[in-house]
Every structure is written in C-alpha cells, then in structure tokens.
Amino acid sequence: MATSAAVASSSQAKHPDGRVIHPLWVRVTHWINALAMIVMIGSGWQIYNASPIFNFEFPEQATIGGWLAGGIMWHFAAMWLLVANGFVYLVLGLSTGRFKRKLLPIRPREVIADIKAALTFRLSHEDLSVYNSVQRILYLGVILAAIVIVLSGLSIWKPVQLQELTLIFGGYDNARIVHFLAMSAIAAFLVIHVVLAILVPKSLRAMVIGR
C-alpha cells in the first residue's frame, strides 16, 4: 500500500540517519499542487482582468487562457486537480501526524527569534527534517489560505446553490475580494518560498528526491 509505505518513510524522517526528509506522497502532492496553483493563479488573473476589482490589471503575458473564456476553461479544469490533490494532501497530512509533528507547536517568541535570524541570514538549515518557526507559520498559513481560496471560490462559482457559504464571506461581491486576497497571500508565499528554495538548494533537492 502506498499509504503504509508513505507512513513508514515519514516516520524515518524523524531519525537523522533515516535520511528521508519528505516521503513520496508529500513530494508528489507538492509538485501537482505547484502546477495546479500556477494554472489557477494565471487563469484567475485572466478572469480578474475581465472586470478588475482594484485599480489595476495583470499584464497579459502573465495570464493563462488568451481570453476570458480560455481563462475560465483553464480555471475550472485545474480546480479539480487542485481540490483532489489538496484533499489527498490534507487527509495524509492529518492521518500520518505529519502536520502535527512538523508544523506544531508555533510559539510567538520562537517565531520572532527565527524571523530575526532569517533576516540576518543566520537561520540554520542544518537539519531539513525540522522546520523552524518561520517555516511552520508560513506552511500552516499557506494551507489555511488554500482552504480559504477554495471555499471563497466555491461561493463565487455557486452563489445560489451554496448561498449559505457565500453569506459567510459577506455575499458575492465580498467573496470575490476574499478570493483575491487569498490569492495574494498564496502568491506572496510562492515568491518567498521559491527565493528561499533557491538560497538553500538542498531543500529543493529534498522535495525532488526525498533526501
């Protein structure tokens, strides 16, 4: 079973000599998610440009789909990938205990100390299997942003069939703003995430080959 193998390899991650930092399921869902997110963001920018909420538009070169209908097609195709993959990721992350082990606890004092260390380039990346407080708060934050973007997206897509959900976001027009802000949070995360992965190349290697 893929799941039991994944559980076994994730428990190895606890031991420095076990060497596996990211079990296969984490790596697979990570890269599928990366792809789905990029398509969702690029096609979402195309849709945004058809009726901008704020006083700017996204450069056409950064959008996916060519025109509004194309953007919508991509968006409503990649959503299945994003949601199905995200669901698998959340179920395995919770059931294997990986989220609890890797992302918790988050202590404000440690977060502040780690942010200071990160800004002065003194944050240690010796042991990639242990996330520092900045990583924990960013990874947990982006998971929450992803949940918000899916729920606000559903409430924009189905403001009649799922009207209670739309109401939670303050109605259709507000749900669009929430959807946009969640995208902004994810895009900001993506920039930081990619820059840090480039600065610490072995972290990128770990997400590809697991160690």
Binding site: G42, E60, A62, T63, I64, G65, G66, G70, M73, W74
Partner: peptide, 8 residues
Amino acid sequence: RRAFLRGG
C-alpha cells in the same frame, strides 16, 4: 490567435 495556451 485563439491562444488558449498563450502565457502557458
């Protein structure tokens, strides 16, 4: 340029 892939 029914460029469904443009920018992609």
